[in-house]
Design a protein around this nucleic acid. Structure first.
Lengths: 342, 342
DNA sequence: AGCTTTCTTGCAAACGATTGCAACAGGAAT
DNA sequence: ATTCCTGTTGCAATCGTTTGCAAGAAAGCT
């Protein structure tokens, strides 16, 4: 009777409290809750019952401290100069969503951190050294390639989304951007364009590679070099920049390769505003194949990145690295999706 | 000399190693690194120098365990029946981006967790009880209102993004969806519509409130009740569902209130496919004012939610609650943005 | 019965940082 | 010179869980 009254009242804050209630030692409770085989079935049942009744869960901090692993994977997004935009960038966000799925499926939690490398040179070491994460996924190299390289040798459980460069030391997962750029340029040319432009910042490595790929094709075909029309990525700034570019190069270009679908979509809007028909007046190809590509008017021809496969690759490689394996980078093939803008 | 050689070689894994190098006790190192005032300036400088030289950072797990606070805020997204879509949903993702900003600015880390309540009834308690987080932000009530209510009394540091219901116990931040619904309906009617439809699932509370608000207006104006055209949220399924709805109700409706801009955009595409002009044949209003709303053809009239303010509110309230304050819910006013679809 | 196995369990030492308390130095005040 | 501060520092307990080791019990073997 007094037991019936006391039991629910007692708060179980730790394994020791629970052990007392169950009449066993803390060690046994730990083993029971961890599902180890070395505990008697009846004892385990009893412990589990009490735990359930009190809604008790072992403290992950303590567990993490003792086991020297936390069950948390860090995901860090370094923001370039263009601070604001990137995280709201659909591509990264979609990737993040898939990452969350994959990590959850593998029993890991996800710790998200945005960093501005310019304000905090130490961003990567700080995250890694915090002791809070078992491994780290870096989304986008931004302009931090060197810093990532510096860390790569000393810290194994790291995988990066980005562009692959010959001989680099850090493990990367990403689309073959150069090939993607080639596909885009080939399509523009096949659709009749001769004087091409690349729309977007060529600073980030991924974009630079896309630009280079397109340039390859132009050179091979004997066309004039592709001109770069730099923009920021945030929609508001990009829109006016695009308008300016269009005004400046009105008649001199007939094919545009946009660094991302987002830019392509904005470009489409500006083209309409300038009374330029697509694909009749100018052909246009985007990159990513985000959902928006299907809904533009006309629907956007673009180069598809398989984001889900990318997320799967990132997590898979990271887990293998956590298991001590030495892994190679993973380069995914882009795929041209022909719709109506080129 | 031997010191010069030995110092860089020695690995500093914890505060004790560092203390040995500095010739002080671990306690002093802890105080120095924590920036407490009770340590001599010279000692502190020396400790900091050694720490920097060895790239040492105190282990957050241990610190968290001892201090009983982790510096991490959990952000959990409960996924409804419609598992896949939600996290890639632009609205939630944008909110998440802003949350990351705000939390970072306040010195907190963000632990992201997706859960499927149907598979894991215990999702909220599990997260809270993990000991890994100081507080939790729930993004979207989904169909978990009751469970959230259950927890609200026993666990203070929780704030929820969602809809406010009279007398609820958990602290919520959200847009006044009912008012938003009224604004949308009023606009549709002002633009000449008489027979309205609501496009979207009316299950989630937010959507139900938007629907109800619109219904209020229809009733007040003496119009026939608004019919609900349910859809899923994932673009692929939604598209065909919208097509079906349009086929079924072709001539019988002249104004559509879409639950989200994403749906509105899809709807616009389907309307075009059906040869229905907007706004001449049908008027259309969306909800959210996502970037895409500006880029549809024609640009979308919509009801704006101030996502940045929402994120700020969530974090602000959560911090106040962490400080022990008892806070009220925060209801943000929606704002009609008139473009060209109504 | 005596001895080896096989299961279960308890004990106690970690994991690494924090912090109340006490101690000690050096200086100021008496 | 004695006493009292004030400012620094060390000591050791603590946060809650895990786990190697050893002990005890039960069961199997000769």
């Amino acid at each position: 009777m007094s037991e019936d009254q006391k039991a629910p009242r007692a708060t179980v804050r730790n394994i020791t409290d629970l052990a007392r209630l169950a009449g066993v030692s803390p060690g046994t409770v730990s083993r029971a809750l961890a599902g180890k085989s070395l505990v008697n079935a009846k004892t385990r049942a009893k412990i589990e019952a009490i735990a359930r009744e009190h809604g008790f869960r072992p403290n992950q901090m303590a567990s993490g401290l003792r086991r020297q692993k936390t069950g948390v994977i860090g995901v860090v997004i370094p923001l370039g100069h263009d601070t604001r935009q990137q995280i709201s960038d659909s591509f990264f966000m979609t990737l993040l969503g898939f990452l969350a799925d994959e990590l959850t499926a593998e029993g890991y939690d996800l710790m998200l951190r945005r960093v501005v490398p310019e304000e905090d040179a130490d961003w990567l070491d700080r995250f890694i050294g915090s002791g809070m994460i078992d491994g780290v996924i870096v989304i986008g190299q931004s302009d931090q390639f060197d810093r990532i390289e510096d860390v790569a040798d000393g810290y194994t459980p790291m995988v990066v989304w980005g562009n692959h460069t010959e001989g680099q030391r850090h493990c990367v997962v990403g689309t073959d951007n150069r090939l993607g750029g080639r596909l885009a340029a080939e399509r523009l040319i096949a659709a009749g364009a001769q004087r091409l432009a690349f729309l977007g910042d060529t600073g980030p490595m991924e974009f630079a590679a896309r630009f280079a790929g397109a340039q390859d094709v132009a050179a091979r075909m004997g066309l004039p070099p592709i001109i770069a029309l730099p923009t920021h990525l945030s929609p508001d700034r990009a829109s006016e920049e695009i308008a300016r570019h269009l005004a400046a190069h009105a008649g001199s270009i007939d094919g545009i390769f946009a660094a991302t679908d987002t830019l392509a979509s904005l470009c489409l809007t500006e083209l309409r505003a300038h009374g330029i028909a697509v694909p009749e007046g100018v052909t246009l190809v985007g990159f990513d194949d985000l959902p928006i590509a299907r809904q533009t008017v006309p629907p956007l021809t673009t180069v598809r990145q398989d984001i889900a496969a990318g997320a799967r690759g990132l997590v898979d490689l990271l887990l293998r690295r956590l298991a001590g394996e030495k892994t190679e980078s993973l380069i995914l093939p882009p795929q041209l999706v022909v719709r109506q803008t080129a």
